[in-house]
Amino acid sequence: MWHVETAISATVVAVGLGVGAYFATPDGLRWWLTGLAVVVCAVVAVVVPQWRYRVHRWEVSPTAVYTQRGWWARERRIAPMSRVQTVDFAQGPLARLFGLASVTVTTASAAGPLQIEGLDRDVALALTDELTRKADLVAGDAT
Protein backbone atom coordinates (compact mmCIF):
# COMPACT_ATOMS: atom_id res chain seq x y z
CA MET A 1 0.00 0.00 0.00
CA TRP A 2 2.82 2.41 0.87
CA HIS A 3 4.39 1.75 -2.54
CA VAL A 4 1.15 2.66 -4.32
CA GLU A 5 0.55 5.75 -2.15
CA THR A 6 4.10 6.99 -2.71
CA ALA A 7 3.97 6.20 -6.44
CA ILE A 8 0.78 8.24 -6.82
CA SER A 9 2.29 11.20 -4.93
CA ALA A 10 5.58 10.94 -6.83
CA THR A 11 3.75 10.82 -10.16
CA VAL A 12 1.83 14.00 -9.34
CA VAL A 13 5.05 15.74 -8.28
CA ALA A 14 6.96 14.48 -11.35
CA VAL A 15 4.23 15.69 -13.72
CA GLY A 16 4.15 19.09 -11.99
CA LEU A 17 7.92 19.46 -12.08
CA GLY A 18 8.06 18.20 -15.65
CA VAL A 19 5.44 20.68 -16.86
CA GLY A 20 7.13 23.48 -14.92
CA ALA A 21 10.54 22.59 -16.35
CA TYR A 22 9.13 22.32 -19.87
CA PHE A 23 7.59 25.78 -19.84
CA ALA A 24 10.08 27.64 -17.61
CA THR A 25 13.45 26.61 -19.04
CA PRO A 26 15.26 26.97 -22.36
CA ASP A 27 15.08 24.13 -24.90
CA GLY A 28 18.43 22.58 -23.97
CA LEU A 29 17.55 22.19 -20.29
CA ARG A 30 13.91 21.13 -20.64
CA TRP A 31 14.44 17.44 -21.22
CA TRP A 32 17.27 17.18 -18.70
CA LEU A 33 15.21 18.77 -15.92
CA THR A 34 12.10 16.80 -16.87
CA GLY A 35 14.11 13.56 -16.89
CA LEU A 36 15.76 14.44 -13.58
CA ALA A 37 12.35 15.10 -12.00
CA VAL A 38 11.05 11.73 -13.20
CA VAL A 39 14.15 9.85 -11.99
CA VAL A 40 14.14 11.51 -8.55
CA CYS A 41 10.43 10.81 -8.09
CA ALA A 42 10.87 7.19 -9.21
CA VAL A 43 13.68 6.69 -6.70
CA VAL A 44 11.54 8.23 -3.95
CA ALA A 45 8.62 5.95 -4.90
CA VAL A 46 10.84 2.88 -4.51
CA VAL A 47 13.01 3.84 -1.52
CA VAL A 48 10.63 5.63 0.87
CA PRO A 49 8.09 2.80 1.38
CA GLN A 50 10.87 0.27 2.07
CA TRP A 51 12.48 2.66 4.51
CA ARG A 52 9.16 3.28 6.29
CA TYR A 53 8.55 -0.46 6.55
CA ARG A 54 11.92 -1.00 8.23
CA VAL A 55 11.26 1.74 10.80
CA HIS A 56 7.56 1.43 11.71
CA ARG A 57 6.93 -0.71 14.78
CA TRP A 58 4.20 -1.16 17.35
CA GLU A 59 3.61 -3.25 20.44
CA VAL A 60 0.90 -3.62 23.06
CA SER A 61 1.71 -4.67 26.61
CA PRO A 62 -0.71 -5.07 29.51
CA THR A 63 0.11 -1.52 30.62
CA ALA A 64 0.91 0.51 27.47
CA VAL A 65 0.87 0.93 23.68
CA TYR A 66 4.26 1.55 22.03
CA THR A 67 4.77 2.96 18.52
CA GLN A 68 7.74 3.97 16.40
CA ARG A 69 7.35 5.76 13.08
CA GLY A 70 9.01 8.15 10.67
CA TRP A 71 11.68 7.89 8.05
CA TRP A 72 13.70 11.10 8.32
CA ALA A 73 12.89 11.92 11.91
CA ARG A 74 11.95 8.96 14.09
CA GLU A 75 9.31 9.25 16.75
CA ARG A 76 8.83 6.75 19.56
CA ARG A 77 5.71 7.10 21.66
CA ILE A 78 4.35 5.28 24.67
CA ALA A 79 0.72 5.59 25.75
CA PRO A 80 -0.10 4.13 29.14
CA MET A 81 -3.46 2.31 29.17
CA SER A 82 -4.57 4.71 31.89
CA ARG A 83 -4.33 7.56 29.34
CA VAL A 84 -6.22 5.88 26.46
CA GLN A 85 -9.46 7.72 25.68
CA THR A 86 -10.58 6.24 22.37
CA VAL A 87 -9.49 3.50 19.99
CA ASP A 88 -10.51 3.97 16.35
CA PHE A 89 -10.45 1.63 13.34
CA ALA A 90 -10.18 3.24 9.88
CA GLN A 91 -9.91 2.03 6.29
CA GLY A 92 -9.36 4.42 3.44
CA PRO A 93 -10.15 3.34 -0.13
CA LEU A 94 -6.58 2.25 -0.89
CA ALA A 95 -6.23 0.37 2.40
CA ARG A 96 -9.55 -1.37 1.76
CA LEU A 97 -8.33 -2.41 -1.68
CA PHE A 98 -5.32 -4.13 -0.07
CA GLY A 99 -7.30 -5.52 2.90
CA LEU A 100 -5.48 -3.24 5.35
CA ALA A 101 -6.55 -0.81 8.04
CA SER A 102 -5.27 1.67 10.62
CA VAL A 103 -5.82 1.88 14.35
CA THR A 104 -5.69 5.26 16.07
CA VAL A 105 -5.26 5.46 19.84
CA THR A 106 -6.31 8.83 21.21
CA THR A 107 -4.84 9.73 24.56
CA ALA A 108 -4.95 12.55 27.05
CA SER A 109 -1.71 13.87 25.57
CA ALA A 110 -0.83 17.15 23.90
CA ALA A 111 1.31 15.17 21.41
CA GLY A 112 -1.83 13.81 19.77
CA PRO A 113 -2.96 10.30 18.91
CA LEU A 114 -0.81 7.25 18.21
CA GLN A 115 -1.38 5.72 14.79
CA ILE A 116 -0.66 2.17 13.71
CA GLU A 117 -0.97 1.99 9.92
CA GLY A 118 -0.92 -0.78 7.36
CA LEU A 119 -2.31 -3.55 9.55
CA ASP A 120 -4.14 -6.53 8.13
CA ARG A 121 -7.87 -5.79 8.52
CA ASP A 122 -8.48 -8.70 10.91
CA VAL A 123 -5.42 -7.80 13.00
CA ALA A 124 -6.62 -4.19 13.21
CA LEU A 125 -10.09 -5.27 14.34
CA ALA A 126 -8.62 -7.62 16.98
CA LEU A 127 -6.24 -4.88 18.16
CA THR A 128 -9.10 -2.41 18.47
CA ASP A 129 -11.02 -4.87 20.62
CA GLU A 130 -7.95 -5.74 22.73
CA LEU A 131 -7.04 -2.11 23.41
CA THR A 132 -10.62 -1.22 24.25
CA ARG A 133 -10.81 -4.09 26.77
CA LYS A 134 -7.44 -3.24 28.35
CA ALA A 135 -8.23 0.48 28.63
CA ASP A 136 -11.60 -0.35 30.18
CA LEU A 137 -9.88 -2.39 32.93
CA VAL A 138 -7.84 0.60 34.12
CA ALA A 139 -9.51 2.73 36.77
CA GLY A 140 -9.80 6.45 36.13
CA ASP A 141 -11.07 8.72 33.39
CA ALA A 142 -7.94 8.89 31.14
CA THR A 143 -7.28 12.54 31.89
Score class of each variant (00 low, 15 high):
Gln50Arg: 11
Val39Gln: 14
Val55Gly: 01
Ala108Phe: 02
Glu59Met: 09
Val84Gly: 01
Trp71Phe: 14
Ile116Met: 11
Trp58Val: 02
Val43Ala: 13
Tyr66Leu: 08
Met1Pro: 01
Val13Asn: 02
Ser102Pro: 04
Phe98Thr: 02
Gly92Arg: 08
Thr63Leu: 15
Ala124Gln: 03
Val84Asn: 02
Pro49Leu: 09
Asp27Gly: 12
Val13Gly: 01
Arg83Cys: 15
Trp72Cys: 13
Val87Trp: 00
Trp58Glu: 05
Val19Asp: 11
Ala95Gly: 12
Leu114Asp: 00
Thr63Ile: 12
His56Tyr: 15
Gly140Leu: 03
Ala135Pro: 01
Val4Ala: 07
Arg121His: 14
Val138Phe: 09
Lys134Gly: 01
Arg69Asn: 13
Leu100His: 10
Gly112Ile: 04
Gly28Leu: 12
Trp71Asn: 05
Leu119Trp: 00
Tyr66Asp: 11
Asp141Arg: 07
Trp31Thr: 09
Thr6Arg: 03
Leu125Cys: 00
Tyr22Trp: 15
Ala73Met: 07
Leu33Asn: 01
Leu17Thr: 02
Ala108Pro: 03
Val60Gln: 05
Arg52Ser: 05
Trp51Asn: 06
Ala79Leu: 07
Pro93Ile: 14
Thr86His: 09
Trp72Gln: 14
Cys41Pro: 00
Gly35Cys: 15
Pro80Ile: 06
Leu114Met: 14
Phe98Tyr: 13
Val43Asp: 07
Gly16Met: 11
Glu75Arg: 14
Pro49His: 06
Gly16Cys: 12
